[in-house]
Amino acid sequence: MFQSTFHGISKIANSISKLANVIGTLVVLGLVIIINYDVFARGLFNSPFRGAVEVVQFSMVLIVFLQLPDVVRVGRLTRSDGMLLLLEHKVPKVARVIHFFINLLSAAVMSLIVLAMFPEFIEMWESKDYFGIPGVFTAPWWPIKLIILGSAALCTVLFILKILIPKAGGSK
């Protein structure tokens, strides 16, 4: 019974990760277009896009944190798993314990990021703080904090699901 609930949650979480990944992917394309636009506008028409720096910074946050859950989902976060693969082969029981520990630690770190970012998001939402130069180009902070918050929350869920459904989401 629990298993089917978990599988339901897992399905939803995986779909959100994939959707976020698609949006993040489009941002990569957007980045290429915007910077080229700035280079050409500046070189040919004497009219640089004055918000290029802020837009690039903003895009970087979008790319990293929209794609991170999908990276977690497919198990591509950087790691050195030679020992673990050996253990899986020789003493699968020990390997299972280590997998459990790794996913738990990962979920803990991600939830700490949620804990750190949540008040930050609320503060920026209420104060409507922005970055950039007033009169030149400005962008609000809160969407950035929200993306990081949502991304870390989704990663937390994905790692917990890896504990509950050991074979879920392509984890090794």
Partner: peptide, 25 residues
């Protein structure tokens, strides 16, 4: 007038009244 001037921050606004001068960050 009509030239490109590199600046940073608020000083780009000093150029706003100069005809066709473009502030480049």
């Amino acid at each position: 007038e009509g030239s490109k001037v590199a600046g940073a921050g608020m000083n780009l606004r000093y150029l706003e009244g100069i005809k066709d001068a473009a502030g480049v960050r």
